[in-house]
Amino acid sequence: MNNQAMIAPETAQEGLLDDWMPRRELAGIIGVSADTLKRWETRRIGPPCIRIGRKVLYRRGAVRDWLLEQESRKTAGRGRAGR
Rank of each mutant, 00 (worst) to 15 (best):
M21L: 09
P48R: 05
L16C: 08
R60I: 03
P22A: 11
M1P: 08
Y58C: 06
V56Q: 05
R60P: 00
A27F: 03
M21C: 08
L37F: 03
G28M: 04
R43W: 06
V56L: 01
D65Y: 06
M6Q: 06
W20D: 03
T75D: 10
T42V: 15
R78K: 15
E10C: 09
L17G: 00
E14N: 10
E71H: 14
A27I: 04
A76N: 11
R59S: 04
Q70T: 09
R39G: 10
P9T: 01
A81S: 14
L16Q: 10
R51Y: 04
T11C: 07
W40H: 07
W20M: 10
A81L: 13
T11I: 14
R64P: 02
I45M: 11
L16F: 11
R64S: 13
S33P: 05
R73E: 11
P9D: 02
R43V: 14
G46W: 00
R54E: 10
G77A: 15
A76R: 14
R78T: 11
N2I: 13
G31D: 00
A5F: 06
N3Y: 08
M6T: 10
K38L: 12
R43E: 11
M1W: 02
C49T: 05
D18W: 08
R39H: 09
G82Y: 03
R43I: 15
Y58F: 09
E41N: 12
R51K: 12
I29W: 07
E14H: 09
L68K: 10
G77E: 12
I7S: 02
T42P: 01
D65A: 14
D35V: 12
M21K: 02
L67M: 13
P47H: 03
L67C: 12
L68R: 14
W20A: 09
C49H: 07
K55F: 03
A62Y: 10
Q13D: 13
L26S: 00
T42D: 13
I50C: 04
G46D: 00
T11E: 09
T42N: 10
N2Y: 10
S72V: 15
P9F: 02
N2A: 10
S33N: 02
L17K: 01
R54Q: 11
L57K: 05
G53F: 03
T75P: 06
N3L: 11
V32W: 02
M6K: 12
P22H: 09
A76G: 07
A62Q: 13
C49Q: 05
L67Y: 07
Y58R: 01
K74P: 04
S33W: 04
A27C: 05
D18R: 12
V56Y: 01
G79F: 10
R64D: 11
L26T: 00
R73L: 13
D19K: 07
A62D: 15
L16R: 12
G82C: 06
G15E: 02
D18H: 07
I30K: 01
G53A: 08
D19Y: 07
T36P: 06
L17Q: 03
R51L: 06
R60Y: 03
R54T: 13
Q4P: 03
I7H: 00
T75F: 14
M1G: 09
R80Q: 11
A8I: 05
R24C: 07
R73F: 08
I7F: 01
A34L: 08
V32F: 01
